[in-house]
Simulated assay, not measured.
Amino acid sequence: MSETDPRDIPALDLDHLAGVTYSAVFSDVCDRLGFRDQTAEPGIVPLAGRGTVVGWARTARSRPVDRAPERPYGAEIDFLDSLRPGDVAVVDCSERPAAAWGELFSTASVGRGARGALVDGYIRDRAKIDALGFPVLGRGCRPTDSLGRVSIQAVDVGIRFGGVRVSAGDLVVADADGVTVVPRAIVREAVALAVEKAGLEDGARDLLLAGGRMADVWERYRVL
């Protein structure tokens, strides 16, 4: 049973946010708001797709099993079929003996309108996922099938993902730098501050490219 309703989320222009913000600016904003441990540890990197992933966390906890379930892939099928536009699958498979994500999972996610997948574990079918253009971050690749090795045990519950707490409905921002998790309680304030800060950094960048001094840029924009 889920601990929160992941559908009860603010309306945001996720495409716009993905175009103008990124994980580092949201990390800085979370710091400013007193949430200083909101980034996943190093090692979770882009494996397929391009650009910044911004969307609402749909969490799943996957654990090792010693036999295939009576309904093969049943929990995974139910999870994928529950995805909706704007969702990002966030899967804890940190005891990762096998691939927890692959091409058909990604294809189903695209069809459901999901924006990406974050896997604390392994994936497979990397080239096919990349050709699909679906953004997936994880710890690496392994061709070993998950059936009878790992299985989703719970969905829409609090998980630890790369050392950071993630709840269903949190805003996740992921790119080449890694993953930032914005708690749902501060999403509106964090988004406003992130858009503002990204704009200031654009101005600072322009001034630096024009030969401006770092000291002057700092005094004017207060960003680094």
Results as ranks from 00 to 15, higher is better:
219 E>N: 15
87 D>A: 08
22 Y>P: 01
178 G>K: 02
41 E>Y: 06
150 V>W: 03
146 S>T: 07
189 E>H: 13
198 A>Q: 07
111 G>N: 03
64 P>K: 10
45 V>L: 14
114 A>Y: 00
91 V>Q: 04
219 E>D: 14
122 Y>P: 08
102 G>M: 02
14 L>D: 04
71 R>N: 15
70 E>F: 08
94 S>L: 02
34 G>R: 00
135 P>C: 09
10 P>W: 03
115 R>L: 03
159 I>Q: 03
190 A>E: 04
62 S>W: 09
133 G>H: 02
27 S>P: 00
190 A>Q: 06
108 A>Y: 09
174 A>Y: 00
224 L>P: 08
208 L>I: 10
98 A>F: 02
207 L>I: 12
171 L>Y: 03
26 F>I: 05
223 V>N: 02
43 G>Y: 06
47 L>T: 14
13 D>T: 05
47 L>I: 13
89 A>W: 01
72 P>Y: 04
198 A>E: 05
42 P>Q: 08
132 L>P: 03
110 V>E: 06
185 A>L: 11
164 V>R: 10
116 G>H: 00
187 V>M: 07
127 A>E: 07
65 V>P: 04
149 R>F: 01
116 G>Q: 00
156 D>N: 09
88 V>N: 02
146 S>D: 06
181 V>I: 13
76 E>I: 12
13 D>I: 03
49 G>D: 04
205 R>L: 10
